[in-house]
Amino acid sequence: MISMRSEGRAMGAVISRNFSLIRRYLGWEVVFAFYNAVNALTIALIGLAEPGPGQGRRVLYLAIGALLWNFLSVLFFEISNSVMWERWEGTIEYSFMAPVRRVTYLLGVCAYAVVYGLARTLVVLLGIFLLFHLPLGQADLTAALLVLAAASLPFIGLGLLGAIMPMLSAERGAQATQVIQGVILLVSGIYYPITVLPHWLQVLAWFSPATYTLTSVRAAVLDGASVGAVLPTVFGLLGAGIVLVPIGIWAFHIAERYALRTGKLKRNG
């Protein structure tokens, strides 16, 4: 009981620390949110390039991709950034020296990243609603949100894999996580159907949780697929998360052992 309370406090401390850091960089947060909104709007505008009856649907198709990609990018960045920041400041030695289970620490980092990612995506969504008249009449937003919530779990697993790199290299590690992001962007059909990919890349798309997330979110928003219709995807994503999160935690543990063996955690001295 006491241990559970301690772990809960530790997780809360990680979340609270990250939000405190946001408060200190509030001006920059506005800049980043503005950039995200402009980026998503630019992509959605491509849908207007070709006039015709399917214009609204095209804009919505691209906007969904832009929104999900925004969420994924922020989630990935924030998970790896939390570790990178600790490496830069040298605080990682103090965090890892504390008697808190690593999984608690990492869940704190991930919980913050999900909440923050959703907040940033909401800002982008507002921008899209302000600029476009989107045909949402038949959309089942509950089904779409359910898919997105389930998708957070496998994305957290991938984020944990990405967090390994800044732990091993403060200088280059965070940029290296963009490799994972780049592959997901390429193969998951964020802005185009995966059928346009060469066959061997389509094989990779089958392994990306983002592929299924996008297909189902688009089905819910564009074609009104119900909660019942997206449930198989929801369960599939949860299943992927149940596999990927432990893999992420295990890989982080292996990387931490490597860092403890080679002295990679230290910044000075």
Binding site: I2, R9, A13, S16, S20, T91, Y94, N268
Partner: peptide, 30 residues
């Protein structure tokens, strides 16, 4: 255990109180 090192490693943008709140939380202190 606990350690004090030659370089005071902190989140430099955060206040002393915020840094200490974080440290205390990691040790499960209220």
């Amino acid at each position: 255990i606990h350690r004090v090192s030659v370089e005071a490693s902190f989140f430099k943008k955060l206040s002393a109180q915020e840094n200490l709140d974080y440290a205390a939380g990691l040790y499960g202190l209220s």
